[in-house]
């Protein structure tokens, strides 16, 4: 059991490292170093900054040194909480990000919880009542969910919201709370606004999970242990819930690992469409403005969130599946 957890931890750390390298590559990708871009931007706004300032910046980020030194420099900054400077905002990256990281996590968590809450019962229903009208209806909706990309769904819902209800469904807060500090009222306002974007982001994942759950459960329903339980006189309902659903939950739980990158990806683009105060619009803005430290940091944070989430879901899987706990399967 510990070996399994350790293996997963090593993989998570390794992935995390890859994420930082990729983020650093993204920072480095645009031609010229970031001080050049900074200079260009400053001269465009006609600010007067001395040549010495640029030189000190170059030294600070080791821009005159080899690439790996720059990476190490950046990483040591990251470990001490300094993610670099956003030149678009002329503030430290962390200040710019503010509570957007937390908002992204809240939104993604909401999307995952909704995904599970919807997919689990529907998946069970569809498997137990295979080929019933309800199964066909859910399968059809599932296909739509898979087929309609979340940002298009957001657009369409926005249009419907505007024409039918004359309201803007975007944002996570009502206007009066937008700039307010956190309060109980603001939390309630957030909870009121959260479900719609969470459903939009989670829809395709929900459709996928319904399929996974249905297929898993159909497999399990054919297993002899179901016949054993049936022959023991259990009622169909408690039997299905106690055994095959429980077994089918294992692969279902492991789908969190891939659901998370999916949902974080979706949250970026849906947030742009709906104007949600998450990392998404900030990432887009920073990329368009070539504000690379900000962009790289956001990519790294999103990557880190998935890696940590996936690791937690691995632990969850270990906890619920005795076969993994006892190292019976890899």
């Amino acid at each position: 059991m510990l070996a399994y957890a350790a293996r997963r931890l090593v993989l998570a750390i390794f992935t995390l490292w890859t994420v930082t390298v990729l983020s650093f590559i993204i920072i480095q990708l645009p031609p010229g170093d970031f001080v050049d871009a900074y200079m260009a931007q400053l001269s465009a706004t006609q600010s007067n900054v001395s040549e010495q300032h640029f030189e000190s910046l170059r030294r600070q980020y080791a821009l005159d040194r080899p690439m790996y030194v720059q990476y190490l420099k950046w990483m040591s900054g990251v470990f001490s909480g300094d993610f670099g400077t956003s030149m678009m905002w002329r503030k430290s990256v962390l200040d710019v990000i503010g509570d957007r990281l937390a908002m992204t996590m809240v939104l993604s968590l909401g999307a995952i919880i909704l995904t599970w809450a919807i997919a689990l019962p529907i998946g069970i229903y569809s498997a137990v009542r295979q080929y019933s009208i309800g199964d066909y209806v859910f399968t059809f909706i599932g296909f739509i969910g898979l087929g309609v990309p979340s940002f298009l769904l957001a657009l369409v819902l926005m249009y419907l919201g505007f024409t039918l209800f004359d309201s803007d469904i975007g944002g996570l807060f009502s206007p009066e709370y937008q700039l307010e500090p956190w309060s109980w009222g603001k939390v309630k306002d957030l909870l009121y606004h959260l479900p719609l974007p969470a459903i939009i982001i989670g829809l395709s994942g929900t459709a996928e999970l319904i399929r996974v759950m249905r297929a898993n459960l159909l497999d399990e329903l054919r297993k002899p242990y179901v016949i054993t339980a049936r022959a023991a006189g259990m009622s169909e309902r408690s039997l299905v819930l106690k055994y095959p659903v429980r077994v089918a939950l294992n692969p279902f739980a492991s789908t969190v690992g891939y659901l998370l990158p999916y949902i974080l990806s979706g949250s970026v683009i849906v947030s742009v469409v709906l104007g949600l105060p998450t990392l998404g619009p900030l990432l887009l803005g920073s990329l368009v403005a070539q504000d690379m430290f900000l962009a790289g940091t956001i990519v790294m944070m999103l990557g880190a969130l998935t890696v940590i989430g996936t690791f937690l879901s691995d632990l969850l899987l270990m906890w619920i599946d005795p076969r993994i706990r006892f190292e019976m399967v890899q």
Binding site: P224, K242, Y243
Partner: peptide
């Protein structure tokens, strides 16, 4: 009933 496959006739996670 005692079913034919001892490998799969019991739930693997209970």
């Amino acid at each position: 009933l005692v079913f034919q496959e001892p490998m799969t006739s019991l739930s693997p996670v209970h």
